[in-house]
Simulated scan of single mutants.
Amino acid sequence: MDLSTLWFLLIAVLFTGYFVLEGFDFGVGVLLPVLGRDERERRVVINTIGPVWDGNEVWVLTAGGAMFAAFPEWYATLFSGFYLPLLLILAALILRGVAFEYRGKRSDPQWKARWDKAIFAGSLVPALLWGVAFGNIVRGVRLDADHEYAGGFWHLLNPYALLAGLVTLSLFVTHGAVFLALKTTGDIRVRANAIAARAGLVAAVLAVVFLAWTLVGVRGGAAAVVFAVLAAAALLGGLAANRAGREGWAFLGTAAAIALAVATLFSALFPDVLPSTLDSANSLTVDNASSTPYTLKIMTWVAVVFTPIVLLYQGWTYWVFRRRIGVRDIPDA
């Protein structure tokens, strides 16, 4: 395996980690106004992701940095052509982060309600637009002979990409509901379990349609088919575990479903990194978009040294904050 292929796989792993980890806290944010019936319940919902949400965002920062260094042509074309949707994602993430920090600065109910709306919007917008972005990456976009995006914003809002956005949104809501059922006690746990069951059925239908469309009408491949079948099985297994009240296994099922769905997209995409719908000769591939071998070699050694440290630290964070919480753990205002 050459280094450009290795770094394509590593970027796929980074985005997989991002969608699995940030996916559940996007889902929690979307469910905040649904499950948080009063102030104490809303604080429980927020506190389930309070220690980890900012660490989860590190994955996408690392993925973006890896794209910039390993595939500068891919990074430049993607971030210029997808400028508006990526800007909206960035603005939503900033708003969401500020909301987490400022929500508790005042006891005024209206103050808290405004920031709760910011958390909801800052979670929903990225959950939807990340799917739209990756749908366009897999489907392909209008690239000219200079590998520059020749389309407009509305070209990105095609039916396939919009369906991809609905898939990521529904999967993240399901994943977040399962996480809340795993991390909470009492009535919130029961309601989260029920929401996970309903949202999971919607996600399963949308995901099956999207994956079938991907493999039959957009891009296929034996590996993509295998990953797609495994993703469907993992999601169904997670929903069955959730129905049985086994939240730990349910969370593993939804996490595996998201990871395998991302693997499906990247395996269908390879060896391209950004296909062209105008002419296949204009497509960006792992070969014509990559950095020099020397750059990739240095990056590989840096990754070998620092990746285990980051994984150990984040794993330790989840272990420390593993206990369930409930309304009884929240003091009166």
Rank of each mutant, 00 (worst) to 15 (best):
M1E: 11
L3S: 12
T5M: 02
T5R: 09
L6D: 00
F8A: 07
F8Y: 15
L9R: 14
A12L: 10
L14S: 15
F15E: 03
F15Q: 00
F19N: 11
D25P: 05
F26S: 02
F26D: 03
F26K: 02
V30S: 12
G36Y: 13
R37M: 04
V44T: 07
I49V: 15
G50Y: 03
G50S: 14
W53L: 14
N56G: 03
V58F: 01
V60D: 04
T62V: 15
A63Q: 06
G65Y: 09
A66Y: 04
A66W: 03
F71P: 12
F71A: 10
P72H: 04
T77F: 10
S80I: 07
Y83S: 00
L84C: 06
L87S: 08
L88E: 03
I89L: 05
L90T: 14
A91K: 04
L95Y: 07
R103A: 06
R106N: 02
D108Q: 04
D108I: 07
W111E: 02
W115S: 05
D116H: 05
K117M: 12
I119S: 01
I119Q: 04
A121T: 11
A121E: 03
L124Q: 00
L128E: 01
V132W: 03
A133G: 01
G135L: 12
V138Y: 05
G140P: 12
R142D: 06
D144S: 01
A150C: 13
H155I: 07
P159C: 09
Y160Q: 02
A161L: 09
L162F: 08
L162S: 06
A164P: 07
A164Q: 07
G165E: 06
S170L: 14
L171I: 06
V173D: 08
V173R: 06
T174E: 10
T174H: 05
G176N: 07
G176P: 11
A177P: 07
L180G: 04
L180Q: 06
L182Q: 14
T184Q: 08
D187N: 09
R191S: 08
R191Y: 01
R191D: 12
N193T: 13
A196G: 15
A196I: 07
L206T: 03
A212E: 08
A212H: 01
L215Q: 12
G217T: 04
R219Q: 12
A223K: 08
V225A: 12
N242P: 00
A244Q: 11
A244S: 13
E247I: 00
E247C: 00
W249C: 00
G253K: 10
A256W: 07
L260T: 04
A261Q: 08
A261L: 15
A261F: 15
F266S: 14
L269A: 04
P271I: 10
P271K: 10
D272A: 13
L274A: 05
S276V: 13
T277Q: 13
L278T: 05
L278P: 03
N282V: 05
S283W: 05
Y294H: 09
Y294T: 11
T295M: 14
L296Q: 12
V305Y: 05
V305T: 14
F306A: 14
T307R: 01
I309L: 15
V310Y: 10
L311G: 12
Q314G: 00
G315T: 14
W316A: 13
Y318F: 15
Y318G: 05
V320C: 00
F321P: 06
I325V: 15
R328M: 07
R328H: 13
P331W: 11
